[in-house]
């Protein structure tokens, strides 16, 4: 298991280890099956072909989970109790896309003995296009 990062070992500007994932239609189908929110744009290829996307796209919330995975891996309890995420979806994710999730420390502070840091987060596809961007914060030991 990846060890939880300590405040003292981090600096502003540090890049955290990226996560690389491939989006597939099978993963989209699994994800969509957990939500009651059925939208054919995610699962119905014939329907989706007639939309401006020309095919199915993944729910935006699905790739957002990659940022959560990265922050949980790095900060453990400090993510589950004290994490924050603020993101914008900038481009659709399609089956077959390879996505790289990155985080870079941009702010570190101590308030009332609570250590916190803020990361700029970004997900890019295989064409180096940003599909999601924003910030994520966590408590840090």
């Amino acid at each position: 298991m990846h060890s939880i990062r300590k405040f003292e070992e981090l600096n502003v500007g540090d890049e955290l280890q990226p996560i690389i994932k491939k989006m597939t239609q099978e993963k989209i189908n699994k994800y969509v099956s957990t939500a009651e929110d059925y939208n054919p744009i995610h699962v119905d290829e014939e329907f989706a072909k007639k939309t401006p996307f020309k095919g199915t796209i993944a729910p935006g919330y699905q790739s957002m989970a990659y940022i959560s995975e990265l922050m949980a891996r790095e900060f453990g309890e400090g993510w589950y109790f004290g994490g924050s995420l603020d993101v914008r979806l900038t481009r659709p994710v399609k089956p077959g896309d390879t996505l790289v999730t990155r985080a870079r420390v941009v702010e570190m502070k101590v308030d009332d003995d609570v250590k916190r840091l803020i990361c700029e987060v970004q997900i890019t596809n295989q064409n180096n296009e940003t599909v999601m961007a924003g910030t994520a914060g966590a408590r840090c030991e």
């Binding site: 957990t34 009651e36 929110d37 995975e69 949980a72 993510w79 589950y80």
Partner: peptide, 24 residues
């Protein structure tokens, strides 16, 4: 772990707090 048992990913709340889900 400090959680003393399995938990669900916190971000999973996103699938239940969509606008469609809230106003259904």
């Amino acid at each position: 772990s400090p959680f003393k048992g399995r938990i669900v990913p916190p971000i999973s709340m996103a699938i239940y707090t969509t606008v469609s889900s809230l106003i259904r």
